[in-house]
Every structure is written in structure tokens, then in C-alpha cells.
Design a protein around this nucleic acid. Sequence first.
DNA 1: GAATAAATTGTTTTT
DNA 2: CAATTTATTC
Length: 767
Amino acid sequence: MNLNDLNPEQRKAAETLEGPVLILAGAGSGKTRALTYRVANLIDHGVKPWHILALTFTNKAAREMKQRITQLVGPQAEEAWISTFHSSCCRILRRDIEKLGYSRSFTIYDTDDQDRLLKNIMKELGVSEKTLTTREARAIISDAKNKALGPDEWFHQSSRRQADQRLHDVYVAYEERLRELNALDFDDLLLRTLELLLQHPPVLQSYRERFQYVLVDEYQDTNYTQYQLVRLLTDQSRNLCVVGDDDQSIYSWRGADIRNILDFEKDYPETAVIRLEQNYRSTANILDAANQVIANNMERKDKRLWTETDPGEPITVYGARNERDEAAWVTWQARSLLDAGEKPGEIAVLYRSNAQSRVLEEALRERNMPYIIYGGLRFYDRKEVKDVLAYLRVLANPADDISLMRIINVPKRAIGESTVQALADHARAGGMPLFSALTDQPAGLGKRAASAVSQFVMLLLKLMAEKDSMPLKSFVTHLIEETGLKEQYRDKDTEENQSRIDNMSELEGAVSEYAEEHPGATLEEYVENIALVTDLDSQDNSQGAISLMTLHSAKGLEFNNVFITGMDEGIFPSNRSVEENREEEERRLCYVGITRARKRLFLIHAAERFLYNSPQSYGPSCFLQELPERVIRRMGERIGGPARKSSFSRSADSYGDSFGYGSSVRTAPRQKTGQPVSRLSGAAGLETIPGVTRGFVPSKAAGISPAPALPQLKAGDRVSHPTFGPGVVKRITGEGAGMKAVILFDRWGEKLMKPSVTPLTRLEEDI
DNA sequence: GAATAAATTGTTTTT
DNA sequence: CAATTTATTC
């Protein structure tokens, strides 16, 4: 194996093959490279690929690792298990779960299914949503499972009050129902595997022998259950290599336990610790900033990233007047980066929460700059897609009550709540699945309901017969047609309905692609395999668009140019995190954000933001104050100095004046401790926060703004746009500079744009 | 049973 | 504000 491409530390990581190894890999230190070479080197030293288990958190990471290892050692890499924790566990369970009393064809429930199940349970137990919401229950149960706590164990370590008792009962019933439904939730995949290994020594032994070399990526993100699992597998071989960065632990709220990495050396005293501290990604200035910020955390392994590269450009801190100014500035700045030759795909705009994306999106759209928003609703989480999948699941497993309930009245077929309740009660009384109650109907159903139910069950039976006589490739299309799933969205021709129909078509495509890749695959196999697929092979950004995403989803990515917006105390770090003493995790998130940047970093805060319809002033984020002064360049509003007018005035002006000040005073801002000071409460105007002076008075006069290009635009007007071509105005909202128009373009569909900043021309009326 | 009005509520989300 | 859930009519 040629390891000459590696630096000395990476090389050590790739060469230390035996015994426990802890690789502390700073951001951008070539972690994946070291890892893949290590696996290749193992194989090179005669380790059989099937003795290797590499665990990741995301499908994407697994795919990438597998691909890079294949590049080094060829197709034999296929024989190593390189996959996510969840899919590895799934694979183990599909083999041996019968030992735990489940059937091997178990269904995997996602959070949506969990919520539905919990809702039913809580209704049955008479737990009111007011005392405990399904979401809360789900979160607590998930948290318990992440800590490998069953209902009793969980209760024992709780405060054991009445509320905990109630939750305990819900948890017990939940587990019971899952078993009846032959379903596992995501957390169960890990927990049941642990259970299997603990309760069945021969199974454990076989996997211990099989996985002689175990590797865990992003070890700082492991939870207790995963930790136990890995421990169990490697206790004998001691050949465990974990890679991680405690400074990038940002998922504690999902059960990740940072102690797993901090205490690794205690668990494995003979550990070889390797530190990858040379950063190959960012400029020295960016790295300085990252180092300085993260140094404020107390609970961390001391390390310092270094680089051989130049200082590079200073980090720009822009003080925006408000979120519109922020968006306008980002857009403007991005424009000049593009003009300077940067590719759109090399620009990322990051924010703390998804809600912040809207203003940015609008600003980019108005200027016709290409962008892509990551996160939000994923393909397989969409209602219409899940509806189709629920049909497939019911056909594959008629005992799946949760999926059946989901589709029993989709599309609407006059089986309402009370009918479903009657069916469910009847099924429960007879100790049978809901599906049986469809044929063996309870007495007392109305005539209309009874016939609707009969029609529905006939449809299902027909489809069940057809699924085996028809190729999978075309079956889904047939099913959608027969059930009328698309038809229900055809009555109104809205953008939303169209997208639902398109998504179903896309699913049909995905299924037929699957059918082609797996000749002879049955519907059942498809349903089993789809549960852990989350993205349609990740959103593709080959077109080259500016990426908009949360700081969390930016982890693992890198860009030449990174903007972090919303650097305001209360937003980032978020109030809630600060209240719950998770400031250090927020700081790690900030560290993650900063270290995404290769060449340029822009940090933006705003003097004022509209939140829930009231203007609020936050201060600049504490993280901004933690930056070393020497690497930053300030623009816009001064922090800690005399106020001055925004140096970015021109474009900002056209946005800045469309405030709805007077009209929005009604809502008194919520004043919790730590909440931002509202401009409208107490000392109005230019109040002073220690160390910060903000200074500008937003203009109320709408007349100052440039006159809209098309002042008297009205619905029905035919207009033309330089890029989108001809279209017709559907709706108008607002007026003056704030006027927005929904325009249905002949070739591009509906777009929302502001005539004041979009170059529209009016066309002659068509007759 | 379904359409409509009123009320509620705002982080992050790998599987 | 806007998205979503719940209560109230028809």
C-alpha cells in the first residue's frame, strides 16, 4: 500500500492496525482520507474484507467511504460491511430477530408512524394531549431507548412523579403495540440488536468472529446504545478504531453522548491516540477564528488546528440593519463573488434555524440567482409519497394497522373518524388486526359507511392479488391509478397539487429503477429496503446553485465561501439552548460553521429582526466577540463604536423601508428572561445595550423608495420577464415597494416576485 | 362527514 | 406572520 500521500499523523492512523485507536480528527484534517487508507491497508495486510465493519451515521458518508475504498482496493471492498449503524443493525436483525419473538419481515416505523401510534395509545389510555403531547412522549421514549433504558428502567431513574408514571404506561403500551404490529422504530434497530447480542451468546460470538476490525466514524455523535453495541462487538478483538472530533459534537439533543469520545481512553487504556491537527481546508485567518472561538469551551480535549497556508482574506463581519438588509447584503456579496469567477456551488449560506431561510430565498429569487435549499421536507417524508408507501406497506403486511389507518380515507372515500373508531374497537375486541375488521365488519355501521368500507377492502384485495401477478416496475403506477391517489389533486390546479402529483411520479420512477436494479424483487422486498433510504440519492447540485442550509446540515461539507447569517444573541446561540445550558454545544456549532469555509467567511448580524410579526433587537452574538480582532474586517453597523450609516446603503434602501411598524405594535413581544429586548417595549428608540450602540431609525415613508417598475399592476395583466418570459399576474399583495405579485409564467410555472425590484414589462392584452 | 372558523405556536433532525 | 391543529358549523 502506498501511503506516501499521507502526512505523518495520517500515516500513523493508516498504519496502526491492531488494538484500540482513537483518531482525533480536527475539521478539514483529511480524516476520510486517513480512514480509507487504513481500511485499504488492512486489506493489504491480509485482513479479509468481510472481517471489517465500518459504521457511519449517514447513508451519504457510508457511500462515500465505500466508493473511496473501492478506488484503492477494487471490488473486494464490496465484501466489507460499510454502512450506517441503522442499516447494519437492520441486516443483523433480518437474520436473527426471530430469537426475540419478532418476525423477520418486520416493518420499520419512522417518526411519523411513531406519532400516529402514540396518538392511538394515548387516546386509549385516556392521556390528554394537554398533559403530554405525542411529540413529547416520542422524544422521551426515544431518549430512553438511546440510553438503552426500557420502560421500567426509565421510570426508575426518573423523578417518579405522576407524570412519569403516565409516561411509563405509555411507553409500556407503545412497546407492546410495536410488537403486535411487528414493527420497530429507528431506535429499536439499535436497541434490539443490542438485546439480541446480549441475550444470545452464540449470535454475539459469531459477529465477534466476523467483525475482527471495527471502525466508527463521527464517534462523538454516538449514543449510549451505540456505544454498548460497539463495545460488545470489540471486547475480545480490541481492534476498534474510532474517529471523531469532540469539538464537532452538535447532536447531544438527539442522544449523542460526548463522554463516549472524551472517555475513550479510560475504556480502552491501551489506546493509541492519534491527532490530526493539520488543516488542509481553510485559510489561516479562518482557522484562527475557529480556534479562538472553540477555545472558550471548557469541556474539550485540548488541541489546536494549524495550517501551512496563507492568512488569506480577512473575515468579514457585517452589521445589517435588519434581516432584509442582511439578505440583500448576502445576495449582493454573493453576486460579486460570482462575478469574480466563483461557482455558485462554492457559496453556502448557513443559518441556525430553517425559518431564517425565507428572507434569503426571496432575496435570491428576486435577483434570479440560482439557489438550492437543503433540509426542510425530504422526499420520503412528503405526505403524498408516504401515502403511496403506506399502501405498499399494507399490501405487504396487512397487519400494519398504522399504515392502514393512514390510508383508510386517503383519497377521501367517506370513511370518517367515527367509522374508523368503530372498526378499531371491533378489531380490538376480537383481538384481530384492523384489516380483519374491514371484512368482518362491526354491527351498527351506517349503510353508507358499511358500503364505503366494503368498497375499500375490495380495492385492497384486488391489489393484493395483482401485486404478485404484475411486475413491480409497473405495479406502483397501476396502484396509484386504481386508488385515485393522483386524481385527488387534480381538481384544483395549484402549484402545490402539481408538485404532489410530480412527487408521486418521481416515486414511480424510483420504484421502477429499483425493480431494474433488483430483477425479480418483490413488493415485500422493496418495502423492506426502502425504510432506511432517506434521500433520493441526495439533492443534486450539479447545476451549480448557492446552497442554503442549517448549520447542522452543513456538517461534513466545505465551500470556498461561507456566509453565516443570524449571528445574533438569542438566535445563535439560540435562547433555548442558553436557557438549557447548552451554550457549549452552540459554540461547537459555530465552530462547525466557521470551519466549513475554505477561502472566505462572512458573518452577519442584524440590529433588528422581525420575529412573529414584531420587531426585536438582539445584540450581536457572543461568538462574534470571541473572534480575534486582527482577522476581521467590519462592515455596516459598528459594534461597540459610534453608529454610522450602513456602508451598504444602495441596495439596502430599497428593502429597508417596507416595515409595517405602526400596524404591528399590537402584539406585545413575549418577555421571558433572556428574550431579546423589543424596540417597542420600555425604552423605545435607540436604547443601549452594554457595549453596543445601534443607530438608525428606519424610515417609515414608503415614498422614498424608487417607484415600482410597474405601479398599477393588477391581477390578469400579461407581463414579460427577461429570464422567465411571458406570464400572467395571478395575485397582488401589498403595495408600493412591498408589493408582491404571483405570476404564472407560461413556461416556468408560478413565481412570487416584487415588481419594485424585478424588471417586468407589460405586454399587450391577448384577446 | 366535511368544510370552515378559531386558536395555537413557533431550534437543530444523520436513521 | 404563517403554518398547523382544534373546535364549530352545515
